Simulated assay, not measured.
Amino acid sequence: MSKVYFIENHGSDYNQLGRDAVRLLKTIVSETNHKFEKEVPIKVHFGEKGNTTFIPPQCYDETINYLKEKGVAPSYIETNVLYRGSRTTTGKHIETAEDHGFTQIPIIIADGDIGTEFDEIEINKDYIKKCKIGKGYGKYKQFIVMSHFKGHAEAGFGGALKQLAMGFASRGGKLEQHSGISPVVKASKCISCGICVEKCNYDAITIPDTAVIDSDKCVGCAGCIAVCPQNAIRNTWGGSNFPEKLAEYAYGAAKDKDIIYIAFAHNITEDCDCTGSHMDLIAKNIGVLAGKDPVALDAACLDMLQRNESDKLFEKGRKTLAHAEKIGLGSTEYELVTINI
């Protein structure tokens, strides 16, 4: 049975949340005799431009300082998003991160300027055979994945598993989880400029009148979505088995990696931090949780939320947890270890 460590915190002092996080990190390091590599990236979410409830940078200060004291070189690591927003390309993504205060350490955008650089990680599961994981992740063996537990329209909730599945995936990997393998073109918006044709490395796009994507040639890298000046190329968001694909991509992201997971069950909103606007909180703050099993960690967060608020809240996410357990990523059974401060 996996251990999940917990510090209760109902307040809104972000500096204290950071101290709670590093205390949990130190506990795991001590109890598991964890040895750090020389470089350890920290996986975070910088928040979409306009979002006000993402976990702010001061929550990571203590963890950064602790790693530096241990002789570790930390960095932030992320991948570009699939939709058109303030984090679609590397330049804009880093600009958004810095505007939100994430300036303490270097930032790595792991899937290249427009999200098309990836390694294929073979997993051979029910829905995904090979995961498209941002190429920059391949350089590192260890990570600290620090997630914000909150809602998500399709997944039910976002936590450690979503940080792995979407946060490690390249744009094409995100597309594969959300829908079919190929984007679609809205002909009425296409101006036949040819930028998508120039950027496609697979000769999958032609322009007889307006852009047409050949699904047999398309590998789903989604680079065309990023470069289209008219926002005429998009994904359909209509794919099937999204929860299961999410779990399988999380499996691929964590494969052969040594990861410590920390979750902030704070600023709990109905939707995720990719929403570029203010969102109202829908639940009381819970605290900070951590462990080495992402399935157990997410299960503990969800169980606590439902006990405190409603047994129906974010229930949709149980499907992802069940599939993640089925494929061997972790266990929904856990021992909760409460640490008093």
Rank of each mutant, 00 (worst) to 15 (best):
A222T: 14
K319A: 13
T27G: 04
I77H: 03
K132W: 03
S147C: 07
A155M: 08
K135M: 13
L164V: 01
I205N: 11
E37K: 13
M304S: 14
A290W: 00
Y202H: 03
N235W: 14
E333T: 11
N241G: 05
K68T: 08
I233A: 12
A247L: 13
G180C: 08
D61L: 05
G101R: 11
S179G: 10
M166F: 09
T338M: 09
Y140N: 10
L25H: 04
T116L: 00
I121T: 11
S277Y: 09
M304P: 01
S310Q: 03
A324S: 06
T52R: 13
N9C: 15
T32K: 12
A254H: 05
D298A: 11
I144K: 05
A187T: 12
K326I: 00
F314E: 12
G287E: 04
G91V: 01
K284M: 06
V44S: 13
A263T: 15
A322Q: 09
A73W: 00
K38D: 05
S30K: 03
S310I: 04
C131T: 13
P56Q: 07
T32L: 11
A263Q: 12
V337Y: 01
T52N: 13
A187Y: 11
P294D: 02
A299V: 11
N124E: 10
E8W: 12
A153S: 14
K199I: 06
K129L: 05
V22N: 11
D293I: 04
M1Y: 02
I339F: 06
K162P: 01
E98Y: 14
I121M: 06
G173A: 07
I121R: 02
T116K: 10
C131H: 05
N80F: 14
F157S: 09
T206H: 12
E198M: 09
E69P: 05
V337M: 15
C301P: 09
I260W: 02
G252R: 00
G71K: 08
I105R: 04
G167R: 15
G194P: 00
V288C: 11
P74S: 09
T79Y: 00
K189F: 07
I128E: 00
E98F: 13
P294N: 07
L67Y: 00
N124H: 10
F46T: 08
Y66E: 08
E198G: 13
K35T: 02
G134T: 04
G134R: 07
I205G: 03
T89Q: 05
K255G: 12
A21Q: 12
A187C: 07
Y140F: 15
H152R: 12
D61G: 06
T88H: 10
Y137M: 07
I268P: 08
F36A: 03
G18W: 05
D13G: 01
Y140K: 07
E95V: 12
H266T: 09
R87W: 13
T269F: 11
A21C: 14
G156M: 07
P208Y: 13
L281R: 07
A21Y: 03
L321T: 14
T88I: 09
A324E: 15
L302W: 01
G167T: 11
A21H: 02
E98K: 10
L246G: 04
T90C: 08
C272Y: 11
T89N: 04
Y76S: 08
K174F: 03
Y14S: 11
L329P: 12
I77K: 06
S30F: 13
K316P: 09
C274N: 03
K316H: 15
G158H: 14
G287M: 10
V40H: 00
F143S: 08
H178Q: 04
E122R: 04
Y249R: 14
T210V: 06
